[in-house]
Design a protein around this nucleic acid. Structure first.
Lengths: 348, 348
DNA sequence: CAACACTGCTCAATCGATGAAGCAACAATT
DNA sequence: AATTGTTGCTTCATCGATTGAGCAGTGTTG
């Protein structure tokens, strides 16, 4: 394809000259509205063939500059290091492309400054929408977008200045806790109070999950030990250190745990393995998030899988049909058995 | 920030009018070369303040159209569903940003058509480089880029028309196999031939790993059973079905396995759990790839971690200092012990 | 045969940012 | 007084694609 001109890119003007016609005819043909512009099909065919031969690729910068809509949609994501965010990104890309939108995704590593910088950069690229996933300060991003007349949306963590799509953390956590307690009763003879570990006490999701955790304990009338609510952050090391500190402070080791994310679960499993406390009796466990290998660890670990497809359906529902203020849309999560079959949420 | 004009975006012309100056002065100030263009610092300050107040964001489409370099770098990635690709994407983004490049990443789900389409779209956005990660047909992408005068690079899977950066699959696989065989001897009393599972026989990496697998067997003088080389694809289900088929065809079940990726390992672990063959004697295992939870499964599973940072250093070395033809750069992988400490590659 | 419609194109302005060239005003030098 | 230099700007063409307006040429109608 065009090996005589090594570097210079073919433009519609080059094609126009080759076809002996005008750039505007070429443009009309190549963007498909040549019928509307009354170009003959002979000319259309000739131009199409030439474009093919020359390996022509439109210059989006020029095209977008002229057009009113960019068809670019941005997403900010904290990390790529777990299945949840990976799945969000992959589904988002697919759904965006289905709508003829061009997705731009960037990873901001839970860094508030990077988030803001990334949002500004996306605005420079004329995104029409910006989806902030798990952003530390979603309202700040909504403000920036709002000032530029660009729509924004929060995913995973809610904000107050844009529509937010999140998991139903309270109900999910309550059901997950209930299941762990049932396992506790089955394996230990009695439902013993659980330990909660992972996440930040200040973030909405963690707060809601703790609330669900408490509710499930209350439902069966057993107390929650306040010292066993360890919202120590998400990093695996934090979870590991918290458990180590707890084990040193108390004589007994927890018999059951609610782990707030797979990231925290990494640290928990490491501690369980390294501490040597659970050689013959593994703890009853549950995790608010899903990972295929984690699901195979130990003997049964209850897992909640956040309904990524459902959440992104809600996101694109807002994008396709407009938002209603700063609404909060809660999507019920899904429970997973150890054979990987998805079980519909029994609570709904 | 400018709530009276809700939708229209501020341009340098708006700022010029507000400042009582020309658009070109505004441009010079905002892109930082106002000293070169002899703008007074008073005016510079005034313009900067106004831009701040109005929440001005440059229109990249316009800017890039005018400039010669786009500073955009593209990456194609097959999936986001494992730590390896997640880590590649995250590292790539960080390193691109460090160089003032804007990374655009897109996931092509191992679909050759999508790969080509994505490459074309990236060219439309004027990428300066395109990194094809694990592409099914990297040479096709190199051709497309070459025709547009855009540099391309292959990562993870090699091609013949652009520089390729890959893991040293042969040496890595040989060492991994050696380690599994050592464990086999320790646990089973003798080094028994292993089974190889996962990947496509046609792809370069799998072929090289099989070669390393054979070499390690030859090193200690034990034979490889050809029926135990199961390059059944990457999907977990494929691995699971292959093992099931094998178990039905033979009376004995493999005592040790070399698994070609974490994705395949998912299926292998599922089969091990579901088939019920390994209740008291788990197989000796190794996996060419790393995952934190997989590392905790069973009793010891040897894992090779591909050196993502090293590979991307090589990628950006080519981008920063130019390529030398279609060179093949092989990066030694790294071995991981079950306590997560990285052990330097003993082979180098 | 004039009036009008239709076909198949071309022209030229435009999107926003950039930067070479140029220009006015004043200072310094010969 | 004439020349040269310096400062601090402005003007304008340009990047490539898009699109409203316009214009020949042919056909159709009253």
């Amino acid at each position: 394809m065009n090996q005589d001109r090594p570097t210079k890119k073919t433009t519609i003007y080059d094609l126009a000259e080759l076809a002996g016609t005008s750039a505007s005819a070429v443009s009309a043909v190549l963007n498909g509205n040549w019928k509307k512009r009354r170009i003959s099909s002979q000319l259309a065919e000739k131009i199409t063939r030439l474009a093919e031969e020359q390996g022509y690729a439109i210059n989006m910068q020029a095209s977008l500059l002229r057009r009113e809509k960019s068809k670019i949609i941005g997403m900010i994501v904290p990390k790529y290091d777990n299945r949840y965010f990976g799945s969000i990104v992959e589904t988002f890309e697919t759904m965006a492309r289905e709508r003829g939108l061009f997705p731009i995704i960037t990873c901001t590593r839970r860094d508030p400054e990077l988030e803001v910088e990334a949002a500004r950069t996306m605005l420079s690229y004329q995104v029409e929408w910006l989806v902030s996933t798990g952003a530390t300060d979603p309202d700040r991003i909504s403000d920036i977008c709002g000032a530029a007349g660009v729509g924004s949306l929060n995913l995973d963590l809610p904000g107050t200045k844009a529509p937010s799509v999140i998991s139903d953390n309270f109900t999910g956590a309550r059901e997950l806790t209930r299941r762990i307690l049932v396992n506790s009763e089955r394996k230990l003879g009695a439902a013993r109070p659980l330990l909660f570990i992972g996440g930040r006490g200040s973030d909405h999701n963690t707060a809601e999950r703790v609330r669900g955790f408490r509710a499930a304990h209350a439902d069966i009338g057993i107390p929650v030990d306040e010292r066993h609510i360890l919202t120590c952050g998400y990093a695996p090391e934090k979870a590991e250190m918290s458990l180590q500190a707890l084990a040193m402070a108390e004589r007994e080791v927890p018999s059951g745990m609610f782990v707030n994310s797979t990231i925290s679960l990494e640290g928990v499993m490491r501690w369980i393995k390294r501490s040597g406390h659970y050689v013959d009796h593994s703890p009853v466990m549950g995790c608010f998030d899903w990972d295929p290998f984690a699901a195979l660890l130990g003997d049964e670990i209850e897992m909640v899988r956040q309904d990524v497809q459902g959440m992104l359906n809600a996101v694109f529902e807002v994008i396709d049909h407009g938002a209603r203020g700063a609404s909060l849309i809660e999507i019920p999560p899904v429970f997973v058995d150890s054979n990987y079959a998805l079980i519909n949420d029994p609570m709904v």
